[in-house]
């Protein structure tokens, strides 16, 4: 009888311990319902992998440039005046990668030459495209965007492609400008082309790894 109790009690303890052990989880990553990381060569990355050069917006069918802090042409600190080669103001922004100062066309040209994420077609986003990136962020003084997929977003204005906008108030004397969007204040405003603002580029072209895999829903 005592032997049976001994065996049964030891077995119970072992089973309980094993059950508890199997309950113990390790941290696991999980994919965002909308965004995915893409490496500079166009290959998809897992949510915890990095560095990544582009963020795929599965909902909008767009590929976004990811800003960095590595002093490359994609550094998030660089600012640009709005210029498309015909309209706007060239070379009124600040960056290190141009002999002259910088404008939006410089970044568009360089990024397309580079074939960032193995695609071309990089351009300024429309104001609607920029605003579609809104995501509530409850942490203090943070951009209202998925910062884990869009790092280095500054508290400043980001250029859109929507131009020839009539300027008012203080800027009225400059005539026309382009729409810009602030991810912190979630505000849109028209700025003179000559203003230095931040830029995040976008393209409809998607890396072959994503289109072949049929991940995109639209």
């Amino acid at each position: 009888m005592k032997t049976a109790r001994l065996i049964y009690s030891i077995l119970t303890i072992l089973v309980f311990t094993a059950w508890c052990y199997w309950q113990l989880e390790t941290p696991v990553d999980f994919a965002d319902y909308r965004f995915a990381k893409i490496a500079s060569n166009g290959e998809p990355l897992n949510p915890w992998q990095g560095p990544w050069a582009c963020t795929l917006d599965k909902e909008q069918g767009l590929l976004w440039e990811v800003k960095t802090d590595d002093e490359s042409i994609h550094d998030g600190y660089w600012t640009y005046s709005w210029y498309d080669g015909q309209q706007g103001q060239d070379n009124f922004g600040d960056c290190y990668f141009e002999d002259n100062r910088c404008d939006t066309l410089d970044l568009v040209i360089r990024t397309n030459q580079q074939a960032l994420c193995n695609v071309r077609g990089w351009r300024l986003p429309t104001s609607a495209e920029l605003q579609s990136l809104y995501r509530l962020n409850t942490l203090p003084q943070q951009a209202q965007i998925a910062t884990q997929y869009f790092p280095q977003i500054k508290n400043g204005d980001y250029w859109s492609s929507d131009h020839h906008q009539a300027l008012t108030g203080h800027y009225q004397r400059f005539g026309h400008g382009a729409k810009a969007f602030n991810f912190f204040s979630q505000s849109e405003l028209n700025l003179p082309y000559r203003n230095a603002a931040f830029v995040i580029l976008v393209t409809e072209q998607l890396p072959s790894s994503r289109t072949e895999a049929g991940v995109l829903s639209r």
């Binding site: 994919a31 965002d32 915890w48 884990q148 997929y149």
Partner: peptide, 9 residues
């Protein structure tokens, strides 16, 4: 406690 975000290790 904040919500857990994908992509944050």
């Amino acid at each position: 406690p904040i919500s857990h975000k994908p992509g944050v290790r």
